[in-house]
Structure formats: C-alpha cells, structure tokens
C-alpha cells in the first residue's frame, strides 16, 4: 500500500516535470521574452545585458533547472501584461475557478448519480426514457450555448439571476469566497449549471450503464434470494459496485472542469484563472500561460492520486494486489 503510494508519487513527479518542460519550452521559445519586456527604443547592448541578467544565455538544461526550482517555489516571474508577479495574479483568480468547479462538480454528482441509479433500476419507465432523451441534449449541446440560453431565460427574461460576475465576495485570508454572500451564491448558480451540465449527463449515462450491468450480476440475484430489502440491494450492493468506474470518471472530469472552465468563465465574465488565461493568450503573456499550464497539470496529478487512493477504500480486491490492477473485474 505504502509502496504503491510512493510509486504513484514518483510517477506524479515525472508527469509534472514533463508538463514543466512543455511550459518551459513555451516560455523560452514562443517569441523572445526580451522583446516582450523592453520598449522599442531599447538598445541592442541593453537587451543583451538584460538577456545575460535573466540567464537566457545559459545552456537550456540549466535554464530548465532554474525554471523548475522557481516554479516549485511559486515564482513564475512577472506578467508581461500587468507587470505583477504571476503567482499573485493566479492566487487572486484561483478561488473563483475552484469555487465554480466545486459547485459544478457537486451539481453533477448529486443530480447525475441519482438520475443514473434511477434510470438504471427502471430502464423502461417513461421518466427514465425522458431523462435519457434530455441527457442526449445535455451531452451534445456545446457549453457556451447552454450558458447563453440560461442567461437568456434566467437573467434576461425572468430577471432572477445575474448574467455575469461573481457578485459580492468576502476575503478569508487571501481566499476570496462567494459562498458567504447572497449575491455571491446567486451568481454561482448559472455558471455552475452551465459548467456541470456535460459532466452531469456523462455521469448519469455512466452510472446507468454500470447499474444495468451490475443488476444482472449473480451476487445481486443471490442478494435477492437472501431476501435483502430493495434498498439494501440497490444502494448497498449495486451502487457500491458501480463506484470504481464512477470515481475514475469523476476524478478525470473534475480536472476537466477546472481546466475547461475557460469557456464558462468567458461566457459569464467570471473572474477566474480561465479568464486570466484567455486574456494572457491575447497578450502573449507567456509567464502566465506557463504557470497556468503547470497549475492545471498539478491539479490533474493530485486528483488522480486521490482517485487511486479512493480505489483502495472502495475495492478490497485491490488492497491485496498492491494496486497493480486499476479496475479488477471477474
């Protein structure tokens, strides 16, 4: 178990180094950082001096090493666009994105999983067919369209919810939260639904097909033969056996929620890192882009690590096998 965690940690570090290399290449080779930093009237000598001072004349491996060491300390240099430290820019923006992604994930899980269980248990019921049909729409409509439609209905026509921004936020240390004010909570609703809709339908369809599969399993039939209550069978025996794939997909999708909040943040003018990234792309603000890339890489790796550990909690078969098999099935 411990060996497994260590192995996973080493793999995670390898992944992060690779992402770091990509980020570094972006930094180093997309355009000339000196050009981006100095004015047009700077002389060649000054440019060369700056180049030397920033260590840009060092061999690439040395530069990469410095980049990684700095990145590990959260130092990504100054933004080309605002001349603020990149670390601070991201720290200002990340709470908005994480809160939005969290709400979207909760929405997707707490609506998607029960719907999946229901449609899996009663596949022929008319409401299951309705859910299936609606989920097809949810899975095929692009995120921005859902967002715009929601804005049209709830912000423009009904005037119930705000169409952009986070509302009022409260600072807790460096973390700005929208959870503690009424307008902050109201502002979360539409973006969360927009962002979570795809994941919801994905989860629903996944849980449904897993439930259909598991309900045919012999141990379910045997559980019925033992006279267990439907509740114990459906939620204790069946649902738990669908969890391993559900956890896998949820973990991956949580990473995707954070990474792809970009579109939703753009539609709702949500002041998160996704929006920051879009602005950085427009300005070729490479330090911010590189930091964003690394941040997303780090989040993905952390989530996957958590997912791997959750497998052990759910499936006893993995505990004795040292976790070599991701999904054990007979």
């Amino acid at each position: 178990m411990l060996a497994f965690i260590l192995r996973r940690l080493l793999q995670s570090i390898a992944v992060l180094l690779t992402v770091g290399l990509v980020a570094f290449s972006l930094f180093r080779y997309v355009g000339d950082p000196i050009n981006a930093m100095v004015g047009q009237d700077t002389s060649m000598e000054d440019r060369e001096a700056l180049r030397e001072k920033l260590g840009l004349n060092d061999p690439a491996p040395i530069q990469f090493f410095h980049f990684i060491v700095n990145a590990a300390q959260g130092k990504f240099g100054l933004s080309y666009r605002t001349s603020e430290p990149v670390g601070r820019l991201i720290a200002e923006r990340i709470p908005a994105t994480l809160e939005l992604s969290f709400c979207a994930a909760v929405f997707a899980l707490f609506v998607g999983v029960p719907m999946g269980v229901y449609t899996g248990l009663y596949p022929r019921h008319w409401s299951s067919r309705l859910f299936q049909a609606v989920s097809l729409i949810g899975i095929s409509l692009p995120t921005f369209l859902i967002g715009i439609l929601l804005i049209l209905v709830f912000a423009v026509w009904l005037r119930l919810l705000p169409s952009f921004g986070r509302g009022d936020t409260v600072m807790i240390g460096w973390w700005s939260t929208g959870f503690l004010t009424w307008s902050g909570l109201k502002a979360l609703i539409l973006p969360s639904i927009t962002l979570g809709m795809f994941q919801l339908t994905l989860l629903m369809r996944l849980v449904r097909s897993e439930m259909l599969e598991v309900m045919r399993a012999d141990y379910i039939k045997f559980a019925r033969a033992r006279g267990l209550t439907n509740r114990a069978i459906n939620f204790g025996h069946a649902l738990k056996n669908t969890l391993v794939p559900v956890i896998t997909v949820t973990g991956l999708q949580l990473g995707a929620l954070i990474a792809f909040a970009i579109v939703t943040e753009t539609v709702f003018a949500w002041p998160g890192v996704g929006q920051l990234f879009i602005q950085s792309v427009q300005f070729s603000d490479v330090p911010v882009m590189a930091a964003y890339l690394l941040l997303i890489g780090l989040l993905f790796v952390l989530i996957n690590l958590a997912v791997d550990l959750l497998y052990f909690v759910v499936d006893p078969r993995l505990r004795s096998q040292g976790g070599s098999a991701r999904v054990a099935g007979h």
Binding site: A217, Y219, R224, A225, G227, L228, N230, N241, D315, P316
Partner: peptide, 25 residues
C-alpha cells in the same frame, strides 16, 4: 415474498465465485 426468501426458502446458485458481493466481507 422477499420476507419469505432467505427466511423460509434459501437458495444456492451455480457459481460461488460470483454469488458473493466482492466488496463486502
């Protein structure tokens, strides 16, 4: 019928490998 199953009538099926829920002791 559920109350009778297990209490008055027990059942044993063909494959012991798949009759038990793998996730519970």
């Amino acid at each position: 019928m559920r109350k009778i199953r297990g209490a008055r009538i027990g059942a044993i099926f063909q494959d012991p490998l798949t009759s038990l829920n793998p996730l519970y002791s």
